[in-house]
């Protein structure tokens, strides 16, 4: 076929491509609801904020709340724990963060964090590990008294949920 001709596009070519394109857009529009149905639904989104009363916590006690299906560790830290957390050289940490950055001003004795190991999602054990904080038994990650990763495979400090004190002893998470 040495003498191939370049034919002008015909009306038929145009209709053919336009129909195909229209069909492709329609198929994509139809596919979206079948994908989007897997996203969090209205009932899941409705649970996106909770209030927790901390008044029953004494110094040295912890509690666990559930927010969006995840455990929230709330600890009333002892003076010794706070001192330990502040004594660390921030620059030496794997995920450098000061103790002040991990608490609310004036409420430094309360540490509120998402109780999920940043390695692969297990729930760490409290008051355990080599740094008096949390220890994840799954793969051996050690967190300190401010919930910062100190040793082990986890890459980041325990995540902090968005929260605020709405009174002296009540916090709103989410």
């Amino acid at each position: 076929m040495a003498t191939s001709e370049k034919a002008e596009p015909t009306r038929r070519d145009f209709l053919y491509i336009a129909t195909g394109a229209f069909g492709a857009v329609g198929a994509a529009a139809l596919a979206w609801p079948f994908i989007d149905q897997m996203n969090p639904d209205a009932s899941a989104l409705a649970l996106a904020s909770i209030e927790v009363d901390l008044s029953s916590l004494e110094e040295g006690q912890s509690m666990t709340a559930k927010w969006r299906g995840k455990p929230i560790f709330i600890r009333y830290r002892t003076a010794k724990e706070i001192e330990e957390a502040k004594a660390v050289d921030v620059a030496s940490l794997i995920d450098p963060q000061s103790d002040e950055e991990r608490t609310k001003p004036g409420k430094e004795h309360f540490l509120v964090q998402i109780g999920i190991c940043t390695h692969l999602g297990c729930v760490p054990l409290g008051e355990a590990g080599e740094y008096d904080g949390w220890f994840c038994p799954c793969h051996g990650s050690h967190y300190d008294t401010a919930g910062r990763i100190r040793k082990g495979p986890a890459p980041l400090n325990l995540e902090l949920p968005p929260y605020d004190f709405i009174s002296d002893t009540v916090i709103k998470i989410g």
């Binding site: 609801p33 079948f34 989007d36 149905q37 897997m38 996203n39 639904d41 209205a42 009932s43 899941a44």
Partner: peptide, 28 residues
């Protein structure tokens, strides 16, 4: 089936959940 629960205690409610809560559930 990703949203329905075949249990007499919650089957009816799970269908209403599909109709009201699930994204596009009413349409599906």
């Amino acid at each position: 089936v990703m949203h329905y629960a075949p249990n007499t205690a919650i089957a009816f409610a799970s269908v209403e959940h599909i109709m009201r809560d699930v994204n596009w559930g009413w349409m599906l």
